[in-house]
């Protein structure tokens, strides 16, 4: 009995998901909802399978992934560089504070029209928007993290003879690694959001373009199948790559 409950507990998220899908299918099959707007799970699944079988989706996944990878890498590196710069030159941080406030004022995805107008409908505008989104998150996470490094640990290292370079190498950078990894995990979803929103507003390929094409042709199955792939990639990257990395990186951080 206890075992059954355990199995049921573990399966319950899946049961809920299946029930939702069944309800959706049933509602459209029995005329409670209009499949022209809502589509059907079976229709969407068939379309997803079709895109995989024909290889149609590959090119679009590739484009979006390239945009994210380039922007994400550049944004993480730039955010790290500026965070360390701010930390070791507090004077600069002080003067740049208003810019950081502006940068942080709203989710960066709203800048998509600006990016498309300035950098065109090609891949560059998406890379730049992803870069900006990731840069902002990395900068804020890491800079806050660096300022929170335990005062006693720094004092202790100084008494033991550490100079500024020793402190950076043995104290600040290892402490920062944890924050960098957590920023990387935080920003991956934002990176995909930025890329796709930017593609929605002006692109000729990519997952966002598929969704936009589905929207203008009033094909909800296209929208859903496109979003399915976007969601699948984010979930795979987040749960299979970054989450284990975060756990590993903080193995000494046991509270």
């Amino acid at each position: 009995m206890a075992r059954l409950r355990q199995v049921l507990g573990a399966a319950s998220p899946w049961l809920i998901l299946i029930m939702l899908l069944l309800a959706w299918q049933g509602a459209t099959d029995f005329g409670l909802a209009d499949p022209r707007y809502l589509s059907r799970p079976t229709t969407v699944a068939a379309l997803i399978w079709d895109w995989i079988r024909t290889g149609f989706i590959l090119r679009h996944v590739e484009v979006t992934v390239i945009e994210v990878v380039v922007g994400y890498t550049a944004g993480t590196l730039a955010g790290m560089a500026v965070a360390f710069g701010f930390f070791f030159f507090p004077r600069v941080a002080e003067l740049c504070d208003p810019m950081v406030v502006v940068l942080n004022a709203a989710p960066r995805a709203i800048l998509a029209p600006f990016a498309v107008l300035l950098f065109g409908i090609g891949l560059l505008s998406k890379m730049m928007l992803v870069l900006l989104a990731v840069f902002a998150i990395t900068l804020l996470n890491l800079y806050t993290g660096l300022k929170e490094v335990d005062r006693t640990i720094v004092d202790n290292a100084r008494v033991m003879g550490a100079n500024q370079r020793d402190l950076a190498r043995h104290v600040y950078i290892p402490a920062a690694l944890v924050w960098i990894v957590s920023a990387m995990r935080n920003s991956i979803g934002h990176a995909f959001t930025a890329a796709i929103v930017c593609e929605l507003l002006g692109a000729t390929e990519g997952l966002g373009w598929i969704v936009a094409a589905g929207q203008s042709a009033v094909k909800p199955d296209w929208i859903m199948a496109g979003l399915f792939f976007a969601a699948a990639i984010v979930v795979i990257v987040d749960f299979l790559v970054l989450a284990p990395l975060e756990r590993r990186g903080s193995h000494w951080r046991v509270f």
Partner: peptide
């Protein structure tokens, strides 16, 4: 307080 480096 503890001042050992937790990652070493």
């Amino acid at each position: 307080k503890d001042a050992l480096l937790p990652w070493k």
